[in-house]
């Protein structure tokens, strides 16, 4: 039998190729070009080689931002994943309350990121914000605009409030896919609540939890808007995460060379994580 080949399908890919070229590849090429040059404006550039890469890699400021970024991402993952699973386990399986719970869980995800930052900024203000005022009234010396610990506390609970719902919805989808026969078999065997969770629910949620974990990892690693609106990176530099630091260097100081080098290092870290994300997902699919 003759094999039929039709290469016309490639034409349909062209618009996407053009779009990606203009909004991703060409800007990325420009960033690579900027990363090896110095400029003082007026579109004049001077060759500087890999100086900016060396400077960024040895920069204590970059190390500190990266450290804060890893601390932030690690902390929110440790809180959001178990909390999301716990909430999903307590949600009703059917009835009107299920719809109510799902809508409530989806609400934080629908709010634009800058609005979330503004909401929590006002909510946590020590003099007029409900949370800040209440904490001060019950004896805590809370002021997120002045104390780094308080700024971190507010930043973490803001992210937990905004994104735990995503983990809940994914975990709930995983739980919903478990047939009743599994629970009936566990009941016959006399399995307790913990045994059911450990040997039935957790293995069945493995795939969705992997997706939730990696999505939250990547998303929190690139976070910008919410912490920028909430604290602006302060007090001092205490909540300056990688993306905020990058914008400060590129637009605040107009140091395009170092900012471009930092962007590329940041991009490579994200690319590596995305590849791990893709590989883990594909392996899970195969299994």
């Amino acid at each position: 039998m003759n094999k039929t080949e039709n290469q016309k399908a490639w034409l349909f890919v062209l618009p996407v190729v053009a779009l990606v070229a203009f909004n991703a590849v060409i800007p990325l090429m420009t960033v690579v070009n900027y990363s090896v040059q110095e400029t003082f404006g007026d579109n004049t550039f001077f060759w500087s080689g890999v100086l900016w890469f060396e400077q960024v890699l040895h920069s204590e400021r970059f190390h500190a931002s990266l450290g804060r970024q890893l601390l932030f991402t690690g902390t929110i993952l440790v809180i959001e994943i178990p909390l999301g699973v716990a909430i999903a386990l307590t949600m009703p399986r059917k009835g009107v309350w299920l719809s109510v719970c799902l809508v409530l869980m989806a609400l934080p995800l629908l709010i634009p990121w800058n609005v979330v930052g503004a909401m929590w900024n006002i909510f946590a203000l020590p003099d007029i914000g409900l949370m800040g005022w209440t904490l001060n009234k019950i004896g805590f010396d809370f002021n997120f605009t002045r104390q780094p610990g308080d700024a971190w506390f507010t930043l973490i609970i803001m992210d937990v409030w905004h994104w735990t719902s995503l983990v809940v919805l994914l975990a709930y989808a995983g739980l919903s896919s478990i047939p009743d026969a599994y629970y009936q078999a566990a009941k016959i065997d006399g399995a307790g609540r913990w045994a059911i969770f450990r040997h039935i629910q957790l293995p069945k949620m493995k795939r969705v939890l992997t997706i939730a974990l990696l999505l939250r990892f990547m998303d929190s690693f690139m976070i910008y808007t919410e912490p920028f609106v909430l604290t602006g990176g302060g007090p001092g530099n205490s909540t300056t995460l990688l993306s905020i630091d990058l914008v400060k260097i590129a637009l605040g100081q107009f140091d395009l060379g170092p900012a471009a080098a930092m962007s590329l290092i940041y991009f490579l870290i994200i690319l590596l994580l995305s590849w791990i994300f893709y590989t883990v997902m594909m392996r899970n699919e195969e299994q």
Partner: peptide, 15 residues
């Protein structure tokens, strides 16, 4: 394309 600030080494890399 002057705004892209091309240099020979970076062009060689993309090539």
């Amino acid at each position: 394309l002057s705004w892209m600030a091309w240099t020979w080494p970076t062009a060689a890399f993309f090539v």
